[in-house]
Design a protein around this nucleic acid. Structure first.
Lengths: 194, 194
DNA sequence: TACGCTTCCTAAAGACATTAGGCAAATTCC
DNA sequence: GGAATTTGCCTAATGTCTTTAGGAAGCGTA
């Protein structure tokens, strides 16, 4: 009885590949076992179950995204950093739609707190240092950027921009530029006086 | 053999209720049949299958959201309309998380084209008339607003804002205000000269 | 009242997730 | 190098879900 040479890492990595091919919801222990040419039950030696598998893929995706973003923004600041951050995020999602969907998988609070998700937030805050925002505007800005990134990329990936004309890429560039301007003037002078 | 009095409408409505209770992915023909105290196969007289059921719930949610937004923005313009739009959208998602998730269910292109999803885009464009943007900035703006709305509400609903301090509501208000300012100065004077 | 349409049923097949228990391959230790 | 142990993969079985086929009973209508 030859062994397939599985391991938790290989199973999760294959799950991530599978997600990119067929969508995150198509990632099932059964399909994965088929790809490894192994019986389903065998996977349970490496992964606790379907939930665990999805969670691990989500964690992997969060790590990978955080790594790419970190590399992209390294040595940049201000608008350059904003664009680098956004592009790294979006490029990852376009290249790995299933992993990106996985990264949006709901994790329980403890798992989320120990995930690379916190690095994402930290990097956003680091990016915003270049804009000299005081609290609570810094938090508002983190949420705004997170919302725009997740929202735009999610809609683009879901085909939400398929039936109107300019390339999504153009809107993306303009939006990043506008966000840069917005952050520079936030809070507005009139609000600063309060 | 007493009849349960089902119909496609009742099944879909119950499916929407169920989605809000247990999440959209928890909506299954089996669970629905249990709630109606009916055998699973009976549902197939009203709905083609699980996919059809989910699609119909998605369409219902899109309709409901569009109706609420339409009522909220009626008679308003500019910043008032923007805030009304955003609040109606967000309030709906908070009150009906399962339906909101359903509205983000991927529909095939023809179904999407015939759905209330197009009303959403039309209403955004109508809203933006108050900001006098020329193409392609109007499209960029539609995409920006769509991204912020979907992104913020999605993250909030997923608990993404649970571990930092200001209430999401505050960030939301500030973000809407900032978007209003952004749209007013978009494109920037320097870009207008090009 | 008898007809037909619709609603709901039983029955059955196929896919997936999960657990229990067994055997063989790899690893470790002498 | 061989024995002991750990580990990887298997068979078997159970329960859940989806879907289809075909039958019987309620409901409206002629």
């Amino acid at each position: 009885m030859a062994r397939a040479g599985l391991s938790a890492e290989r199973v999760v990595a294959a799950g991530a590949e599978l997600a990119d091919e067929v969508g995150f919801e198509g990632v099932t222990p059964s399909e994965l076992a088929r790809r490894f040419d192994v019986k389903v039950a065998s996977l349970y030696a490496h992964v606790k179950g379907a939930q665990d598998l999805k969670t691990r893929i989500a964690l992997l995706a969060l790590e990978e995204m955080a790594d790419r973003v970190a590399e992209a923004v390294a040595g940049r600041s201000g608008r350059d950093a904003l664009v680098a951050f956004g592009d790294a995020y979006r490029d990852y999602a376009l290249a790995h739609p299933g992993r990106f969907a996985a990264a949006r998988f709901r994790l329980d609070p403890e798992t989320a707190a120990a995930s690379a998700g916190v690095r994402h937030a930290q990097m956003l805050r680091a990016l915003l240092r270049g804009y000299h925002l005081d609290e609570p505007y810094q938090t508002h800005a983190v949420r705004l950027l997170g919302s725009v990134f997740a929202g735009f990329v999610g809609l683009e990936g879901a085909g939400g921009f398929d039936h109107s004309d300019p390339e999504p890429r153009q809107s993306w560039t303009e939006i990043l530029g506008a966000l840069d301007a917005l952050l520079r003037s936030w809070p507005t002078p009139s609000e600063r006086q309060k």
